[in-house]
Design a protein around this nucleic acid. Structure first.
Lengths: 234, 234
DNA sequence: CGTTTCGTTGATGAGGTTCAAGACCAGTGG
DNA sequence: CCACTGGTCTTGAACCTCATCAACGAAACG
């Protein structure tokens, strides 16, 4: 039994840093006034150690979450027990929010990749608040819309692009420059990036080494891009 | 230029059959009273010939749609012009609803696969109605949630299952029986099914023929399943 | 009854997974 | 300071699945 309340450190009063992060979250940033107060009353902050299972597919869904720091892997298993990531949530991301107006059962597993702090919202409470406060409903819709578009992008990527192309696309998205050279520092392990891109870790490694010929060099988590434009037309 | 209004047959008065179908749509079925009336005033029915492009990626998004009959392919192109389906919408499905609270640009192409009738809603109007009527906001959230879960299933499927497994899963979903033998009639061309499952048409064909050894026989659009349970553990 | 579209089949090759082995790195303790 | 250890990452080899191309057969449609 891994009831969250047993292993997680729940605190109703949140510290100012967590609160600041929470307020910058796309979901919460869309709120103000009464709506914001109500949601803040409904939240509880938990810190979760690395590699901890937050919930499992098929169990009853009572909360949805927002990542404040750390990373959360959403994944599913096939019959042989092989895992496939569906999504990797980074700070600011909301997950399992699709259950506010869906079934009451989690449809995938969620596991932390690192030490992580989460904002946790009760689903029933949120549903009630959404009825009272149009702003909350609006924030949920924005959130769902954005999340849906991202997931559709993911399907399209899987079906259209090769491994080096996906890596190139990731680098370009996480690199602010639009010309010349640049440097990206991965905020997490490469195996996590592999999962995000729907690849085995070995495939990611090979993709990186195939990008050497367009001027990408990797040392640890630091990735040097010789020419951003060269990367663009991989 | 394929402005919808030019090629589509727009009619504000809808016939009783279209109306009946529209009312059974998950999106509209969630409404009643004032909310239902307002949405019905905002809808316009269009019939679109087969293989007609409804909208293109990158163009300004002003409407979202609900399929009443026929099929709509949502797809994206890579640089070489290869198409990949992101989703195939069947009667009752809503698409581009993620733009109600998202960007104002279509993020993929939409094309009919057959002669199709669509319910078309203005995005701005719907957004305003969602503010007035909580029931409409609720229907949109349900719709987005369901759509998101379906799309996540799709990612998981692509990453976990082989072609024969995906076909088996499709057959089991579209076949009501839970034991013994059964028969499924595909409601559309096989090439469309291939797209839904993220396969080339040839791969679908091979998947079918590899399922022969578990008692699946194909003749045209009719698919005979010898033993549903045998199909279940492919 | 010819024409066109759709579906199947075969051959080939590219792209990824898997398994196994080794490189690299940081931390630990002798 | 060095050897040991555990984890992460990389590399190689074999295999597998699926896309692609081309040819053919089968329907569908005028």
């Amino acid at each position: 039994m891994e009831k969250p309340t047993v292993t997680m450190n729940k605190s109703l009063r949140m510290n100012s840093r967590d609160k600041a992060v929470l307020m910058r979250t796309p979901f919460m940033a869309a709120l103000n006034g009464e709506a914001l107060v109500k949601m803040l009353n409904a939240v509880s902050i938990t810190s979760v150690p690395a590699r901890h299972v937050i919930f499992r597919e098929g169990t009853e869904a009572d909360h949805f979450y927002c990542v404040l720091s750390g990373y959360v892997r959403l994944y599913r298993l096939n019959r042989e027990g092989r895992e496939a990531d569906i999504r990797v949530c980074t700070p600011g991301d909301t997950f399992a929010e699709c259950l506010i107006y869906g079934d009451d059962v989690y449809r995938f597993n969620a596991q932390t990749a690192e030490n992580t702090t989460l904002a946790r919202f009760d689903i029933r409470t949120t549903r009630q608040l959404a009825e009272q406060e149009p702003a909350i409903a609006r924030a949920i819709m924005s959130c769902l819309s954005h999340h849906l578009l991202t997931t559709m992008d993911c399907v399209a990527n899987d079906r259209l692009h090769t491994a080096p192309q996906r890596v190139a696309e990731y680098l370009l998205k996480s690199c602010p420059v639009d010309g010349g050279s640049a440097s990206v520092r991965l905020p997490f392990q490469k195996s996590l990036l592999a999962g995000m891109l729907g690849l085995a870790p070995e495939a990611l490694s090979r993709a990186f080494s195939s990008l050497r010929r367009v001027g990408v060099t990797v040392r640890g988590r630091i990735i040097q891009i010789g020419d951003v434009n060269a990367l663009r037309d991989v």
